[in-house]
Simulated assay, not measured.
Amino acid sequence: MAVVIRTTEVSDDPRLRDLLDATELERAGRRPNPLPFVTAHALLRRLVADETGIDPRRLEFERRCATCGTDRHGKPHLSGMRDLHVSVSYGEHMAVAVVTNLGEVGIDVEDLESADFDGFGSVTLDASETPYLADLDGDDLLAARALLWARKEAILKATGHGLVVDPSQVVVSAPDAPAALLEWKAREHPPGPTQVSDVDLGRDDHRAAVAVLTSRPVTVRVQRG
């Protein structure tokens, strides 16, 4: 299996809720706007179902936090399918999901507007990454910021650490260079071989990336919903 990614716009289709289990519906209900969560998790269920032939309503997910060990949060895993790895990400407008058998995986999607804040560099970038953005402004700057953030968060989702690890401790390649993890400076155990790829979403207002913990070659297949 390649790294199979599916993308879609956030939907208010009420039929999507029928695909989710009670835990997912409860989590969705805790959000001021449940539509992105519902869209993303329905998307993940449909993607895994299409790759495995299993009814999307019968899939069972569990969560494990790599930092504290709880099952109340953390990256999702498919119950009873140890060889398949999944990740999901969503924002106000878009959702993305991924499945692969190559290794632990993480995916992230970012709206350019989410990168439009003062102090981005201080909370996100290592000193070696600051020059990446020096000559950029306007939408070019926001696109570069969003791409760097997506690469870093995809890596941290793949490792299972999430934002427990400071993103500035995860050093990635320049926005105009092939995606790569250059250095892991965090005190947490480094992830080992990590393949990072940017994801073409077919739209200008978002950026996305995927990371897989593997030394094997990675082929990414993107499906647009």
Rank of each mutant, 00 (worst) to 15 (best):
T194V: 15
D135S: 14
V196G: 00
G160Y: 01
P167L: 10
A186W: 02
A150F: 03
H189N: 11
L112M: 05
A97G: 08
A115D: 05
M81P: 00
P193K: 05
T159N: 00
S128V: 13
F117N: 09
G119D: 12
I155Q: 07
D166N: 13
A179R: 07
E183A: 15
T194N: 03
V123S: 10
A186K: 01
G162M: 02
D83E: 15
S114N: 11
I107E: 02
R151Q: 04
P190M: 13
V105T: 14
V196I: 10
H85A: 07
A179I: 13
A174M: 08
A97K: 04
A144K: 05
D116P: 12
E113T: 15
H189S: 15
L136M: 13
K157C: 09
T124N: 08
E104R: 11
V170W: 01
S87N: 15
H189W: 00
A97H: 04
Y90I: 10
A177H: 13
T130G: 00
P175C: 03
E188I: 04
L147H: 04
E110V: 14
L84I: 14
P178C: 06
V172F: 03
A174F: 02
V199N: 07
A115F: 01
P167I: 09
V105L: 07
V170M: 06
P131G: 12
R151V: 08
L102R: 10
S197G: 03
H93Q: 12
S122F: 02
D108Q: 14
A174T: 10
L133M: 07
E92P: 02
D111P: 08
G162W: 00
P131S: 12
L156T: 12
S168G: 15
G192V: 09
A154T: 03
L136N: 07
L182M: 10
L133G: 13
A144Q: 05
Q169A: 10
S122I: 09
A97I: 06
P131F: 10
P193M: 03
L112N: 03
T124R: 01
D140P: 02
K157H: 06
G80M: 05
A115I: 03
D139A: 15
G138M: 05
H189I: 09
Q169T: 01
K152M: 06
L148G: 00
S128C: 04
A177L: 12
S114K: 12
V86T: 11
K185A: 15
D83F: 09
V88Q: 13
P193G: 04
S122L: 11
S114C: 07
F120R: 07
R82M: 04
S79K: 13
E153P: 10
R145V: 09
E110R: 03
R187W: 01
A134Y: 00
A179V: 14
D111Y: 05
L163W: 00
A144G: 08
L163S: 04
D139T: 15
A115T: 02
I107F: 06
